[in-house]
Amino acid sequence: MAIRVSAEEAGLGRERSGGRRPAGLVLACAIVLLAVAAGLAAPWLTPNSPLDQDLLAINQGPSTDFPLGTDHLGRDVFARLLYGARSTLGISVAGTAIAFAIGAGLALLALAFGRWPAMLLFAAIDLVRALPGTLLALLLIVGLGSGPGPLIVALGVSFTPLVAYVTRATYLRETARDYVQAATSFCGGRLHILRRHILPNIAGALVTQAAIILPRCIVTESVLSFLGVGSSPDAPTWGRMIADSSRFVERAPHAILVPLVALVLLTLSLSAIGNHLRRRLDPVRDGAGDPAGMDEAEPAEPARSPLATA
């Protein structure tokens, strides 16, 4: 008898966990904003260029000229950190956007317009799925050549299967609902149903997925940089800074620690935000708390039927 309403109700639970914001979340948002600000305002924050080499001052510790010291080629670590924020975020956000454009956009259109387009699309995605994302991105860069463009495309494509699967799962969950059937029975077209009923209900899941994929994009980019096929030397990301300095750990630990700490803090903050969003917006797994078969608890607002009192 008990009907699973918890999912729907939890989905709109505006009161739940609201009000008091956890301190960790505020900190995470602050860190992300700081990184964005650093990337945008880099030219105003430091007079040094991230690329100028000063071979007379390599592996130096912090000084007034170089607030965070220099690396093995005498480049200013602080300037590289600031400009690195720009390229790190730029490349990852663009990569995530491509993953969603293909994975979510294309998948939704294919799903909304009949069986065959969706079947073809997912058959293709299914075949690529066996290859781990990093390896796929690596091979794509090999084929497309190096540079920011191919890197972004490779990152985007390597995360496409994940986005497509999540999109399909949430789409199918929504189309099975009776309100979609009801809209069909009112003569609602595919686009109307997609726009009015499905998109608002899967938007939460997609936003959450984006927040989960963005940090993973950053991590994958850094791995690719480390493997020597990532960002180009003239627009170094934090991943590339770590990779470049990793052979000089002994002589200049600060040159590697600075980008490493920055990278970890950023991914941590982003994933904390993602987790928070998942709890708030995508309560798929949250309904599991109800013990099965037990009586439905009293509704918060007692169901006063007008008939009983009429």
Binding site: P215, V249, T267
Partner: peptide, 22 residues
């Protein structure tokens, strides 16, 4: 869980080299 999401393996490796061996 957070460690595996936020810390790329090579960063952990570099950190391990830095801390343990150096």
């Amino acid at each position: 869980n957070t460690w595996s999401i936020a810390v790329p393996t090579f960063c952990a490796g570099v950190a391990a080299i830095l801390v343990f061996s150096i």
